[in-house]
C-alpha cells in the first residue's frame, strides 16, 4: 500500500513537470505577449507608450527570450515558492495572489464534490429501491431537467432571484464584506460556510443529477445479483441488505468516476465564481488570460491540473480501500 502511494506520488511529480511545460506553452501560444496587450490598453486610454518603453518592459520581464529559457526561468523559482510575477497586477508575486484563492478554490471544489456525492448516493439508492414508483419517477424527471441546466445559468438564476426578489444590491462574495482582506480565521471561515450553498448549488447541480442517475443504475445492477439474495436468506433486514450489501458495492463505480467529475466541478467553479464574484482562482484566471499575463495564467492552470491529480489520487486510494478486488499495482 505504502509503495503504491509512493509510486503514485512519484508519477504525479513526473506528470506535474510535463503539465507545467504544456501549461506554459499553451499560455505562450497567443500572438503577442503581455506588453502588446498592455500597449493596446495604453492606446485605448490614449496615452500610448513609446517603442523604447515597451522594449524596456520586455527586457525587464524577459519576454524577448526564447520560450524554453522563459520556461526554465519560471520553473527555477518553484522550489523557492516563486511562481513569477503578475505583470498585469503591478508586479505582485504570483504566489501572493494565487495562494489564498487556491485555498478557497480547493475548499469550494472539494466541499461541492463531497456534498454532491453525499446527496446523489442516497437519492440514487432511494430511486433504485422504489424502482418505477412515484418517488423514482419524480427523482428521475427532476434529475433529467437538472442535467440540462448549465452551471452558469444556475448561477445567473441565483443572482437574479437574490436581486429581483430579495433586493440584493451587491453580488455574492464568499464571505461577509467585513472579512475582506483578513487572514483566514474562525469567524471568516464560518461566514464562508454560510455563503457556500449558493455557489455549491450552481456548481454541483448537474453533477448531482448525473451521479444520482448512475448510482440508481448501479444499484439496480447490484440488487439483481445473487449475493443480495444470500444476504436476504441470512435473515437480514431489508435496510441492511440495501445499505450494507448493495450500496456498498454500487458506490465503487461512483468513486472511480470522481476523475471524470472533478474537471466539471472545476470548470463550473471558474464560471460560477466569475458570475457570483467569488474570491477563487476562476476570476483571477479569466483576468490573467485576457491580459496575457503568462506567469499568472500558467500558474493557475497548473494548479487546476494539480487539483485534478490530487483528486484522482485520492479517488484511487479510496477505491483501493473500498474494493478489495483491486490490487495495488
Amino acid at each position: 500500500m505504502l509503495s503504491f502511494v509512493i509510486r503514485r506520488l512519484l508519477l504525479m511529480i513526473l506528470m506535474m513537470i510535463v503539465i507545467s511545460m504544456v501549461s506554459f506553452v499553451i499560455i505562450q501560444l497567443p500572438p503577442g505577449d503581455w506588453v502588446t496587450s498592455y500597449a493596446a490598453h495604453l492606446r485605448a486610454i490614449s496615452s500610448p507608450a513609446s517603442e523604447a518603453t515597451l522594449e524596456a518592459l520586455r527586457e525587464r520581464y524577459g519576454l524577448g527570450e526564447p520560450v524554453w529559457r522563459q520556461y526554465l526561468f519560471w520553473v527555477s523559482g518553484f522550489p523557492r515558492g516563486d511562481f513569477g510575477i503578475a505583470m498585469s497586477m503591478q508586479d505582485t508575486p504570483v504566489a501572493d495572489l494565487v495562494l489564498p484563492r487556491f485555498g478557497m478554490s480547493l475548499l469550494l471544489s472539494l466541499s461541492t464534490l463531497v456534498v454532491v456525492l453525499g446527496l446523489a448516493i442516497p437519492f440514487g439508492i432511494i430511486a433504485a429501491v422504489n424502482r418505477n414508483g412515484p418517488i423514482d419517477y419524480l427523482f428521475s424527471t427532476v434529475a433529467f431537467f437538472a442535467l440540462s441546466i448549465p452551471s452558469f445559468i444556475v448561477a445567473l438564476g441565483i443572482l437574479f432571484i437574490s436581486v429581483f426578489y430579495f433586493g440584493a444590491v451587491s453580488i455574492g462574495g464568499l464571505y461577509d464584506a467585513q472579512y475582506m482582506g483578513e487572514p483566514m480565521n474562525w469567524a471568516k471561515f464560518k461566514s464562508t460556510l454560510e455563503h457556500m450553498p449558493g455557489p455549491m448549488l450552481a456548481i454541483g447541480l448537474g453533477g448531482l443529477a448525473g451521479t444520482m442517475r448512475i448510482m440508481r443504475g448501479n444499484m439496480l445492477d447490484v440488487l439483481s445479483q445473487q449475493f443480495i439474495e444470500t444476504a436476504r436468506a441470512k435473515g437480514l433486514r431489508e435496510r441492511v441488505v440495501v445499505v450494507k450489501h448493495a450500496a456498498r458495492l454500487a458506490v465503487n463505480p461512483i468513486i472511480s468516476r470522481v476523475g471524470i467529475h472533478l474537471p466539471e466541478i472545476i470548470g463550473g467553479e471558474v464560471i460560477v465564481s466569475v458570475i457570483l464574484g467569488l474570491p477563487t482562482l476562476g476570476p483571477l484566471f479569466l483576468r490573467a488570460v485576457l491580459a496575457q499575463d503568462m506567469y499568472l495564467a500558467g500558474t493557475i492552470i497548473m494548479l487546476f491540473a494539480l487539483i485534478l491529480l490530487i483528486g484522482n489520487l485520492l479517488a484511487d486510494l479510496v477505491l483501493a480501500w473500498s474494493d478489495p478486488r483491486i490490487t495495488y499495482n
Partner: peptide, 14 residues
C-alpha cells in the same frame, strides 16, 4: 438456510 447455484456470485465481493 439456502445455498445457491452460482458460488462465484453468491458471496459479496467486498
Amino acid at each position: 438456510a439456502m445455498i445457491f447455484q452460482e458460488p462465484m456470485t453468491s458471496l459479496s465481493p467486498v
